[in-house]
Computed example of a mutant assay.
Amino acid sequence: MAAGAGTAAGALAVYLGVRSLESGPLEFRDAIYYPPITDDSPPWWSARVGEPMRVTDFAIWQGAPGLWRQVFDRGRPVEGTGFRVLAIRVPRDDTAFSAPTDVSLPQGVSLYYDDPARDTRIVVLYNRCTHLCCSASWHTSPVPDRLHDYVGSTPTYQVFGEDPIWCQCHDAQYDPMVLTKGRHPRSGLEYVGAANVHGPADRPLPVVPVRVESDILKGTMVDSRWYAYCG
């Protein structure tokens, strides 16, 4: 490897917080991959660890954590890289689901995946709570009854009886059936996210706009500032 390339790889390793990085071409992938399992009890997607998410993987109300824009070195994922996301299949019920229609996106990219022919709708969200940047969860534990005192429309619970996205650190919750506009606290930039329906979070959880290729779910970086609020 040329000296310049080695320096670039080293700089990238520092930027990503990676302790060791093999020499060779580095690649950011937009596909969303199932992450390593950290829980004691295997989740429904345990057999798919390390594979890209496919829109055909999910039953209604199934969700899974994922890694988006991981760095790959010689075809292998670099540990510690990638944005943490949540992918959730929600019902295709437009009487309960809502999303802005006036958001400018690249051609072929949508705020969520929607396929009427297969009756499939999937929402992907950045998994860093807008309160203090903890990781939220989807149906890993039931939300206690005392936390069902929602602010505003919460169709996931009020219509379908399902718990919303829950950050168990401080009990913030977000509804993946209600995509709404929020404003970034640092840049003032407008973005779209899942509505915050329970404090202490006071703004939406950002979506990751998506496109699909050969049924593989891929995120699109519309504006990196949507996700720049941790640290």
Results as ranks from 00 to 15, higher is better:
2 A>E: 06
8 A>V: 14
12 L>T: 11
15 Y>I: 12
19 R>G: 10
20 S>Y: 10
23 S>T: 06
26 L>I: 06
31 A>L: 04
44 W>L: 08
47 A>K: 15
50 G>D: 01
53 M>R: 02
62 Q>M: 09
63 G>T: 05
67 L>Y: 03
69 R>F: 15
74 R>A: 10
74 R>I: 05
74 R>C: 03
75 G>T: 06
88 I>E: 08
90 V>K: 07
90 V>G: 09
96 A>R: 13
106 P>H: 02
112 Y>C: 09
113 Y>D: 06
114 D>V: 00
116 P>K: 11
118 R>L: 06
118 R>W: 01
124 V>S: 08
124 V>I: 09
129 C>A: 05
131 H>Y: 07
133 C>L: 02
137 S>R: 06
141 S>W: 12
143 V>H: 09
144 P>S: 09
146 R>F: 12
148 H>G: 02
148 H>W: 12
153 S>R: 15
154 T>C: 15
168 Q>T: 14
170 H>G: 01
180 T>Y: 03
186 R>W: 07
186 R>T: 14
187 S>P: 11
189 L>A: 13
191 Y>R: 12
199 G>W: 07
207 V>M: 10
212 V>T: 05
214 S>C: 00
214 S>V: 03
215 D>P: 02
217 L>W: 07
218 K>T: 02
219 G>S: 07
220 T>Q: 13
222 V>K: 05
224 S>H: 02
226 W>R: 00
227 Y>L: 11
227 Y>S: 05
231 G>R: 09
231 G>Y: 05
231 G>D: 12
